[in-house]
């Protein structure tokens, strides 16, 4: 049997931090998408760590233009391919800052025009490449360099923006959330998005050891805890209706929060019960909205 090399389309030698969730997402997405794919990047960690000129980790055609315009670039490529009768698939891989914040106009326009592409946001919940500034994807109370926890604040005061709902409201035929901790599910969703005509969106939870403050070996465990606590929900939406949800036996949110330095101020110097109750309420609301709770029957005496 020939040795199977895993780094087929996203290769070794890239410069992501050891244990980078975004790097793993690039591997899984390219594996799912296959060689007949053109990848469009925004500016950010993935762009920088995968392509320090003249090196590139990509083995499919890959293009980067600006921080904010990946959806516009992808629109042009898709239109050109269509005109030429070509069958390559267009896949955008963009950070959360590029997606939730600065790219919004280009994304809204592209989804409105109805291009046939798959937009993947690798969500590491802040602007990591420029030094951990908050974005619209940063969760409540996370400390970042622009939402620092300290004497007057417990960190980011705004809730995470509901980007999947915004794109579903644009009429996107397929919208999904996924996590690097569940690679088979992630790859299946990427393939579904690619094979659904029209503009589709997949938001991938990709923990960042450097920006969140944990050891690289914990990346998968932390991504799992986000789901097990209900702070990240993996779901699928077809034509705006939720059709599939990952159910869990929920753990308290502290199990997730205590693993990361960005939430350390909630535990030290003293336990911030009111703040933690607020975050628990966010998880409870997610659980109710998506129906993620597996009810365990009470133990017999």
């Amino acid at each position: 049997m020939a040795e199977k090399k895993t780094c087929d389309l996203f290769d070794c030698g890239h410069r992501a931090c050891g244990g980078c969730g975004a790097a793993l997402s690039a591997r899984l997405v390219t594996e799912a998408a296959g060689p007949e794919t053109i990848v469009v990047a925004s500016t950010g960690c993935m762009e920088v760590f995968s392509t320090p000129y003249p090196e590139t980790a990509w083995k499919v055609p890959w293009i980067h233009s600006l921080f904010e315009n990946a959806a516009a670039v992808a629109s042009g490529i898709e239109a050109a391919l269509k005109k030429q009768g070509r069958k390559e698939k267009v896949v955008i891989m963009a950070g959360d800052g590029a997606t939730f914040d600065i790219g919004m106009i280009c994304i809204s326009g592209a989804f409105e025009r109805g291009h046939d592409f798959t937009y993947i946001c690798y969500d590491n919940e802040a602007y990591m490449n420029t030094g951990i500034q908050r974005s619209g994807a940063t969760p409540y109370d996370a400390s970042t360099t622009t939402s620092p926890a300290g004497k007057v604040s417990f960190g980011n005061k705004r809730p995470k923006k509901d980007m999947p709902a915004i794109l579903a409201a644009h009429g996107a035929p397929y919208v999904a959330t996924a996590s690097i901790a569940y690679p088979a599910d992630l790859m299946q969703k990427v393939q579904k998005a690619i094979n659904t005509p029209g503009p589709c969106y997949v938001q991938v939870h990709a923990p960042c050891c450097t920006g969140w403050g944990f050891e690289g070996e914990q990346t998968i465990a932390i991504a799992k805890l986000a789901i097990e606590t209900g702070l990240w929900v993996n779901f699928e939406m077809v034509d705006g209706t939720v059709t599939k949800v990952k159910k869990v036996v929920r753990k308290p949110v502290t199990e997730y929060l205590k693993t990361q330095k960005r939430f350390r101020h909630l535990f030290k110097p003293k336990l911030q019960e009111a703040e933690i109750a607020h975050i628990q309420a966010i998880a409870d609301k997610n659980a109710e909205k998506y129906g993620i709770d597996i009810k365990v029957p009470p133990k017999k005496e």
């Binding site: 290769d11 070794c12 030698g13 995968s50 392509t51 090196e55 590139t56 990509w58």
Partner: peptide
């Protein structure tokens, strides 16, 4: 176009 050879990152032995 600042193009680069596919997988040339393998030159960088991490």
């Amino acid at each position: 176009g600042c193009r680069a050879r596919p997988g040339k990152s393998r030159d960088n032995k991490t």
